[in-house]
């Protein structure tokens, strides 16, 4: 047994998965609104609580994963979900802050649902200021301040969004909180 597998996953795998999924669903339905997730009681190094909860709730043997969180986190995710490692361009879920939006699988025109989900760990998330988001799920505009995304993210986002319906959906994670950016959302700098 490798190191990561000694740690538990969700305290209640059935109900915590459901609650985590509902938080992600709420986040994806209302882009930029911050949601809280139930988090696993203990974590391997290299992975934050919200990112870990998203993967525990959604990944399995059918979803190849690109994880830049180190071997222990990799083994832990593999043990609890059965998800195998894959290069970023082939992964369904990518947790790698170096991964570029345009390097991930955007799906095809006929099967845009194959587009990857990028899980980005950031320093902080707060509403009311920062980026101006608009698009489906948002009544007019919504403000989201994000600290700690890499330079050029917004330029990549605009290029990625231009491919709609192909594209990559992003889940921003900070602590036990998330906010989502589905692929079709327009982002203007604040």
């Amino acid at each position: 047994m490798s190191a990561g597998t000694a740690l538990a996953g969700f305290a209640d795998p059935v109900l915590d998965s459901q609650a985590a999924f509902r938080a992600v669903l709420e986040a994806m339905s209302r882009p930029g609104r911050i949601q809280r997730l139930p988090v696993p009681p203990e974590l391997p190094p290299g992975i934050g609580p919200a990112a870990a909860a998203v993967l525990l709730a959604l990944a399995d043997a059918d979803t190849p994963i690109r994880l830049a969180a180190g071997a222990e986190a990799q083994a832990w995710i593999r043990f609890h979900t059965g998800a195998r490692a894959a290069p970023a361009a082939e992964a369904a879920f990518v947790l790698d802050s170096d991964a570029g939006l345009l390097d991930l699988d955007p799906g095809t025109e006929e099967e845009p649902e194959r587009g990857a989900t990028l899980i980005l760990e950031v320093e902080s998330l707060s509403e009311g200021s920062g980026w101006r988001l608009s698009g489906p799920g948002i009544q007019a505009t919504h403000r989201l301040a994000v600290a700690g995304v890499r330079d050029g993210f917004l330029a990549d986002w605009a290029a990625s969004r231009a491919r709609f319906p192909r594209g990559v959906d992003v889940i921003l994670c900070a602590g036990d909180r998330i906010a989502a950016l589905p692929r079709g959302i327009a982002i203007e700098e604040g």
């Binding site: 994806m28 959604l58 399995d60 989900t117 959906d169 079709g184």
Partner: peptide, 13 residues
């Protein structure tokens, strides 16, 4: 899990 992933992609598109 499989259905939840499908729902999330459906919401995103």
């Amino acid at each position: 899990r499989m259905i939840r992933r499908a729902i999330l992609k459906a919401v995103a598109i």
